[in-house]
């Protein structure tokens, strides 16, 4: 259920983002989901790709600072209140969301939300107990 996410440290300089995507593209790695968090000086690029091990290797070779973190993906029905329900469940079980980002599945009507928690196992239990469908890792990396 846990999905491997690659995080990359990048300075806020023009062209840096394109260098990352370029390195991945050159090595035949597909980006499935992407989010950029930034400050005035630097940013953290978070990616879900189809081959994270290879991505890690080629990025390190290009001297990027990278790390792997585990996140989960949840399909949220494209209807009012879909996200609120999930957040309430998490809130009640005392799990903190460090950050989240969303994208839309190619085929379906669902929005997929990627969550990073302070305690991922606790979050998975809470969501499963409340009938929320956590997407299998393969489903996300092969979107």
């Amino acid at each position: 259920m846990k999905v491997e996410q690659i995080s990359i440290f990048i300075e806020n300089k023009s062209g840096r983002l394109a260098e990352v995507t370029g390195v991945l593209g050159d090595n035949g790695i597909n980006i499935r989901a992407l989010s950029l968090a930034d400050t005035s000086d630097f940013g953290i690029l978070r990616l879900i790709v189809d081959d994270s091990e290879k991505a890690l290797k080629v990025l390190r070779e290009q001297q990027f600072t990278v790390s792997i973190t585990h996140v989960i993906g949840v399909a949220v029905p494209d209807s009012p209140g879909g996200l609120t329900t999930i957040l309430q469940i998490l809130d009640k079980s005392g799990v903190n969301v460090e950050y989240m980002y969303a994208f839309v599945e190619r085929s379906g009507d669902n929005a997929v939300i990627i969550f990073r928690f302070d305690d991922i196992d606790e979050a998975i239990t809470a969501l499963a107990n409340n009938g929320i469908n956590i997407l299998p890792s393969e489903r996300i990396t092969s979107i």
Binding site: Q5, F9, T39, I44, T65, S67, R116
Partner: peptide, 15 residues
Amino acid sequence: EVNEQTFSDEIKILQ
């Protein structure tokens, strides 16, 4: 310089 030891994927930790 940020290295893999000091890097975190959370902004607040880097800050």
